[in-house]
Amino acid sequence: MSLFGSSGVRGVVNDGMTPELACRIGMAVGSDAGNVVIGTDSRTSGPMMEAAVSSGLMACGCQVYSCGLVTTPTLAEATRCMDAGVMLTASHNPPEYAGIKLWNPDGMGFSVSQSDKIEQLVSSRKFRLKPWDKVGQRHVLNDVPEMHARRILAGVGKAKLKVVVDCANGPAFNITPIVLQRMGCKVVTINSNPDGHFPGRMPEPTEENLGDLRNAVVSMNADVGIAHDGDADRMVAFDDKGQYLGGDQLLALFAKRYAKKKVVVTVDASMAIDDYVDAKVVRTRVG
């Protein structure tokens, strides 16, 4: 059995990615964790999957803290004070997909060895189930996006820009526009209503899917356009002339500005980064 890919577990809802599997993954995580935070993107399967994973966690005695509809970076931030985090998202995949990403308190995703351990428990079903009087409880966290926004704002300065943000009908609506506004930007949003059918565009932020954003940036004389994927752990951009800047181009720009001695990129990142930045480029596996 091989559940985990480069970024968690994904599959079509009720055809591979079922509530039963989600519950078993919850029991596997709960067998080694006491406090777990859980969040979802805007997919229609989110409430179902959250209920299933939470049931598995609580069956093993976990205290489950639900932060509702949040981005993956927000969930990772909330995991800092927990034993683990569970993000229910299929990222950039089409709406019929669901997924589970697991996080450590240091903001890193589960390692290969941790993922292997979860797979073994799911397969063997040797979970550490608790008796009736020791099962966990569910708690609700209402202020997680606000806490994340404050942490970001503590490390950035002011900006007087006009920005168009495409939230991809996902949870980016409750973090990116708010942070930019508080920085001093004038912000216009599109696709900012969370909707798991993704009526505005598909969650993959390819240039072909972002025609509305390009047109908005140019027609509104904006300084920049920003687009997220379905769980907002990725962004692409358009400049003020409507030129698309993909992940590799943005990575090169950020590395050029901030890297002093060394920058780490994934193995699939463009080789152009090596030519563009002055720092040493180190490549690592995806995920």
Rank of each mutant, 00 (worst) to 15 (best):
I175D: 15
F110S: 07
P131W: 11
K117T: 13
R138P: 04
F173P: 05
D143M: 03
G109K: 10
H197L: 15
G155S: 11
M87P: 01
A149M: 14
K134S: 14
V163Y: 00
E146K: 06
L88H: 00
K160D: 15
L141P: 06
R138Q: 09
P205I: 02
H139M: 10
D133G: 01
D83V: 02
V164T: 11
P177Q: 02
V156T: 05
G136F: 10
A78Q: 01
L75I: 00
T74L: 02
K117I: 03
N104P: 04
D106S: 12
P205T: 01
I190D: 07
G184L: 11
P73M: 01
D143V: 10
N174D: 10
T176R: 15
V122I: 04
V144A: 01
S123C: 13
F173K: 13
V163T: 02
P94Q: 10
A76Y: 02
D133P: 09
V140C: 07
F127I: 05
R182H: 14
A172T: 03
G170S: 05
F173D: 14
K160E: 15
I100E: 12
D116K: 07
T74Y: 01
L141G: 08
E77I: 05
A76I: 07
G155L: 06
S124I: 11
K101D: 07
P105A: 06
R182M: 09
G170N: 08
N142V: 13
V86T: 11
F173E: 15
V122K: 03
H197A: 15
T74K: 00
A98S: 15
S111M: 07
C185D: 03
S115V: 01
V144S: 00
L129H: 10
C167T: 10
N169I: 13
V140T: 12
V135M: 10
G99L: 11
G170Q: 11
H139G: 05
E119G: 09
T74S: 00
G200N: 07
A76K: 10
K160Q: 13
S115H: 08
R138Y: 12
L129F: 09
V135I: 09
T189A: 04
N93K: 02
L88I: 08
V86Y: 03
A149N: 14
K158M: 13
H139P: 04
P171V: 00
Q114M: 01
V86M: 13
R182C: 03
L102W: 04
S123T: 14
D106I: 13
P73T: 00
G99P: 09
I190Y: 01
T74Q: 05
I100H: 04
D195I: 07
H139I: 13
P194S: 08
A159D: 08
S192A: 14
M202Y: 08
D195A: 03
G109D: 05
V165Y: 06
S113I: 03
A172L: 09
G196C: 07
F198G: 07
D143R: 12
V144N: 01
G196N: 10
L102C: 02
A168I: 09
N191D: 08
G85Q: 00
K160T: 15
R125Q: 06
A78H: 03
G136P: 07
I190A: 08
G157E: 08
T189E: 14
V112A: 15
M108S: 12
T176M: 14
V188K: 15
E146Y: 04
P95G: 02
M87L: 09
H92L: 14
S91Y: 05
L141Q: 13
P205Q: 04
K126M: 07
L180E: 06
Q114D: 04
G200P: 01
T74E: 02
D83F: 00
